[in-house]
Write a protein that binds this DNA or RNA. Structure first.
Length: 606
RNA sequence: CGGGGCGUAGCUCAGUCUGGUUAGAGCGCCUGGUUUGGGACCAGGAGGCCGUAGGUUCGAAUCCUAUCGCCCCGACCA
C-alpha cells in the first residue's frame, strides 16, 4: 500500500479535548474521528488495527471450539422484561423511542446479548446431546453511558466479542469456563498486551466464578490489588487480605469529649489531633433481607437496620457488606440514624446505641475495628465524640445480632490473605475482558430448558465471556507509546513494515523502495510505503507517530553506501543492510515477532 | 444527575473583560518557485451565519436570556 493512495490523517497538534494518551494518539494518528460524545468512526488506519484484534479473537475462539454467529442489534423490549433487566439496566438500555404503542417504543438497542442467545437456546438446545456448546459473535453494543470518557476506552457504541456457553452440569461449565479463560490468556498474549487476570466480583454464584482481564494503566477506572510476590490478583471490589493483628495497648477509660460541629473523619481527626486509623467510623444502613428471597418472593420484604463499623482510614466494601449482611444495604435516612443514636447525623458510635443488637439492629464489625484499642468514635450525643473506645469492652464483637467480618476494601500495604506476608499493592487498571459463570439466572427466567438422558427437564447452565475489542485497542496504546507516538506490537499494528523513501527524484531510491514493497507484499507482509514528496524529517515524525513496528529507510545517502536502513520502532538502533537482502531480512523479523507473540500465547495460561 | 471548564476555519488558538471598518494568526489544504536524512522557506489563494435562538443597541464574536453540544472531576456502570 502506498501512503499517497491510502487515507492517513496525522496531525502535529494534540486535540485539546483528549487527555488520555490512547485518545490523544488515536486522534493524532487519525485512527478515529469523534462524531459525538462516546461515538467514533474508525478511520482506515484505526480500522486495520481493530480488524487485527478481531481476527486474533476469532481465531482463538474458534480454536477453543466456540462457534460464531451473529445476533441483531435491535431487541424487542419484551425479551428484557422476561429477565427483569429493563429496570436493572435503567438508562443504560437505549430505547428507540417513537410514539407509544408504535413498534419503536417496544424496541431497544442491545447493550449485551444474554437474552437473545437464551431465546435461541430455548428454541434449539433442547437435548443434553447438544451440550456443551459455546456460541459467540463480534458485534456492536450500545449503552447509554452517563459519561463517556477517555476516547475509545468508554463509549456509547463499541465493538465487543461476546460468547455464551450452555452446559448440562456444573462440571461441564467449569470446564467450559477454563477453556475460555485459557483462550483469553492466549488472545491477550497474542495481542502483545501486558494483561493480568484478576478475581472479580462474581454475583450470585460466588467462589471463583468470575475473572477480569486487566491492563494496568492510569487511564483505567478500576483498581486491582496485586501482591508483590505475584501470588494473588483481584479487583478491589472483591480483594481480601490477611486479618490485622490485635493491638496490645493498655485499655484506658472511656471518655467523652466536646467536638462542636465536627462531623466528618477529617474534621474530627483534625480537632482531636488523631490520625484516621485511630477512628471507628460508625455507618448506619437500612437493609432489605435477601436470604431465602427465592422462596419468599411473595412475602413482604423485611427491613432491618445495620450498624457497620470500619476504621476511619478504611472504606466499606458494599459487595462484601451485602454478602455478610445477607441483605442489600443502603445508607439509612437521618430519621433512622437520629432514632438509633439520639444525636444528629455525624455523631454515631457503637457503645451506647438505643436498642439491643439482634432485636433492634444488627452490628457488623469490620475485622480491622475488632482488633483496635482505645479508638475514637461518635458519642451518640450531638457535638460529642468519645475516645478510648475498646471493642469487646464497650461494644460487642460477637453474640446475638453481632458479627465480626471483613467488610472493607483492601488498602495498599495490606498483606496477602494467604498469610505469606507479601504486601498488596493497588494499581489502576482498565478491564478488557471478563469471563463469568452465569449459572441458570437467564435460563430459569426465560425458561430455556434441555432434557437429560432420563427425559428430565433442567434449565441450561450458562457461562458468558466478553472482550471489548475497541477498548483492547486503546489499552494497547496506553501500554505501548512514547513521547513520539505509538509503538504497536507486531500482531495488531495497522501495518507491519513501513518503507520510507527519501529523495523522490532519485530513480534508484524509488525503484529500490518499489522492489522492497513488492517483495514484502508478495510475502504476505502488511507493508506501507511512504512515497510522499515530503522532507525526511516530516516523514520520520509521521513514521514514529503511527508506530509501525519495523521501518525500512531508503535514501540517496545510504544507497550510495550500498545499504538501506532497518529500524524497529521500539529501539533507537539502526541496522544497515544490503538492499538485496533487506526484504528477506524484514520478512524474517516480522515472522519472528509474530512467532514470539504466538509462543507467549502457548505458555500464557496463568 | 451534581461540580468545574469550553464552543471563533479541518486542527491548535488570539480577539470577548472595556460593543465600533471587510473577524485574525499558526498548522493543514490549493497554485507557482526555492529547498530536501528528524515536522523547511517565499509569493499568491480557497476556507467562517464567531454552536443555535431570542433580546438590548445606531451598531453584537463581544452585553443579557434561553437552549444545544463537547471535555474534566464526582455519582452511576448488565
Amino acid at each position: 500500500m502506498r501512503w499517497s493512495q491510502f487515507f492517513i490523517t496525522t496531525t502535529k497538534e494534540t486535540p485539546k479535548d483528549a487527555t488520555a494518551p490512547s485518545h490523544q494518539l488515536m486522534l493524532r494518528t487519525g485512527m478515529i474521528r469523534q462524531l459525538a460524545a462516546g461515538i467514533y468512526s474508525y478511520l482506515p488506519l484505526g480500522y486495520r488495527s481493530l480488524r487485527k484484534v478481531e481476527e486474533i479473537v476469532r481465531d482463538e475462539m474458534n480454536r477453543a471450539g466456540a462457534i460464531e454467529l451473529h445476533m441483531p442489534v435491535l431487541h424487542p423490549i419484551e425479551l428484557w422484561h422476561q429477565t427483569n433487566r429493563v429496570e436493572a439496566m435503567g438508562d443504560v438500555l437505549l430505547r428507540l423511542g417513537g410514539p407509544e404503542g408504535d413498534w419503536r417504543s417496544q424496541t431497544v438497542l442491545g447493550p449485551t446479548h444474554e437474552e437473545v442467545i437464551t431465546e435461541i437456546a430455548r428454541a434449539y438446545l433442547g437435548s443434553y446431546k447438544q451440550l456443551p456448546i459455546n456460541l459467540y459473535q463480534i458485534q456492536v453494543k450500545f449503552r447509554g453511558e452517563a459519561r463517556p470518557k477517555s476516547g475509545v476506552l468508554r463509549t456509547r457504541e463499541f465493538l465487543m466479542k461476546d460468547a455464551y456457553s450452555f452446559h448440562d452440569s456444573v462440571e461441564s461449565l467449569d470446564e467450559g469456563y477454563k477453556k475460555m479463560y485459557a483462550a483469553y490468556c492466549r488472545i491477550f498474549a497474542r495481542c502483545g498486551l501486558p494483561y493480568v487476570a484478576v478475581e472479580a466480583e462474581s454475583g450470585p454464584i460466588g467462589g471463583d466464578a468470575s475473572h477480569e482481564f486487566m491492563v494496568l494503566t492510569d487511564a483505567g477506572e478500576d483498581y486491582v490489588a496485586l501482591t508483590e510476590d505475584g501470588s494473588y490478583a483481584a479487583n478491589t471490589e472483591r480483594a481480601v487480605c490477611a486479618p490485622l493483628p490485635a493491638e496490645t495497648a493498655e485499655m484506658k477509660a472511656l471518655e467523652e469529649v466536646h467536638t462542636p460541629g465536627q462531623r466528618t473523619i477529617d474534621e474530627v481527626t483534625a480537632f482531636l489531633k488523631l490520625t484516621p486509623d485511630r477512628m471507628i467510623k460508625t455507618l448506619i444502613y437500612t437493609g432489605t433481607l435477601t436470604a431465602g428471597a427465592e422462596a419468599s418472593k411473595k412475602a413482604k420484604p423485611q427491613e432491618m437496620t445495620f450498624v457497620v463499623l470500619v476504621r476511619g482510614d478504611h472504606e466499606v466494601n458494599e459487595n462484601k457488606l451485602n454478602r455478610v449482611a445477607g441483605a442489600r444495604l443502603e445508607l439509612a435516612t437521618p430519621a433512622v440514624i437520629q432514632a438509633l443514636t439520639g444525636a444528629e447525623v455525624g455523631f454515631a458510635g457503637p457503645h451506647s446505641l438505643k436498642g439491643t443488637p439482634g432485636a433492634d439492629f444488627r452490628l457488623i464489625v469490620d475485622q480491622a475495628v475488632s482488633v483496635m484499642q482505645n479508638g475514637a468514635t461518635g458519642g451518640n450525643r450531638t457535638d460529642y465524640h468519645v475516645i478510648n473506645v475498646n471493642p469487646g469492652r464497650d461494644f460487642a464483637v460477637t453474640g446475638e445480632g453481632v458479627v465480626t467480618a471483613d467488610v472493607r476494601t483492601v488498602v495498599d500495604g495490606d498483606l496477602a490473605a494467604s498469610g505469606n506476608g507479601s504486601p498488596i499493592r493497588l494499581r489502576k487498571a482498565i478491564e478488557i475482558g471478563h469471563v463469568f459463570k452465569l449459572g441458570t439466572k437467564y435460563s430459569t427466567s426465560m425458561k430455556s430448558h434441555y432434557l437429560d438422558k432420563n427425559g428430565k427437564s433442567h434449565p441450561h447452565i450458562m457461562g458468558c465471556y466478553g472482550i471489548g475489542l475497541t477498548r483492547t485497542l486503546a489499552a494497547a496504546l496506553e501500554a505501548y507509546h512514547d513521547e513520539n507516538g505509538a509503538v504497536w506490537p507486531m500482531s495488531i499494528a495497522p501495518f507491519e513494515v513501513l518503507i520510507v523513501s527519501l529523495d523522490p527524484n532519485e530513480p534508484e531510491v524509488i525503484s529500490t523502495a518499489q522492489r522492497l514493497h513488492d517483495e514484502l507484499s508478495a510475502a504476505g507482509v502488511d507493508v506501507l510505503w511512504d512515497d510522499r514528496d515530503e522532507r525526511a524529517g516530516f516523514k520520520f515524525k509521521d513514521a514514529d507517530l503511527i508506530g509501525v513496528p519495523l521501518r525500512i529507510t531508503v535514501g540517496r545517502k545510504s544507497l550510495a553506501d550500498g545499504v538501506v536502513e532497518l529500524k524497529r520502532r521500539s529501539s533507537p538502533d539502526v541496522e544497515k543492510v544490503n538492499p538485496a537482502e533487506a526484504g528477506a531480512k524484514a520478512i524474517a523479523m516480522v515472522g519472528e515477532a509474530k512467532a514470539a507473540l504466538m509462543a507467549k500465547a502457548d505458555k500464557a495460561v496463568r
